[in-house]
Amino acid sequence: MNPVDKRRREFLGGAAALAGAMIAPGVFLYDYAQAKAPGEPASGKVRWGMLVDTTKCESGCNDCVVACNTEHGLPEATRATDAQWIRKVELKDLRSGKAISAPVMCQHCAEPPCVDVCPTGASFKREDGIVLVDRHTCIGCRYCMMACPYNARSFVHEPTTGQKPDVPRGKGCVESCTLCVHKVDRGGTPSCVEACAAAGHEAILFGDLNDPQSEISRRIASVATTQLRADLRTDNGVRYRGL
């Protein structure tokens, strides 16, 4: 091969790599992540949800809780007044004695009791199924905490420190798991899901429940899953396997 051809080949190779590097994130975003443009409203075509596989969740592992606290600037909970957006619950079957471990967070109900009872409409559900609290209209009455069947909400009992720019918090307001809406809107996944995967458990799966081709939908179609307090018909966005 003459030197000119070699340089040409190297140049073309480098250009292809550069083009690939530039296009790849776009392809990634387009194919999997569906990032929203700033200001674009949430789409009702999507319903975000999670599948917790209790057969993979390890007792004593707290990585999802730690990741949530880090992501949202929540101090480690040591008192009954501290916020907990996600918690690990250790369960024991009363008849068989079988032990189960599972994270519990806001279940992002399709029929959320917290939204029904909120006097000002501060508790609301987005078109894509994410249940949130508007920090500007929450008056701190705590009626949503009385109404939540899953004990998923926390009241900010004292002045906050170490706030994250993406996660506004404020004393006197109620808050709960946002499904990491700030990450999801940019095409990301919730921190608890990432932490669980990083720990090698992959017990929490995140995705679009409305898309029959999504991994979460396919898993729900193939294994038996349940919703917490299914008797209440709140149609939770979070489902559990192995309960």
Binding site: R87, K88, N151
Partner: peptide, 9 residues
């Protein structure tokens, strides 16, 4: 189930 957690369960 019998439940226990760091959050009142």
């Amino acid at each position: 189930y019998e439940a226990r957690s760091a959050f009142h369960d």
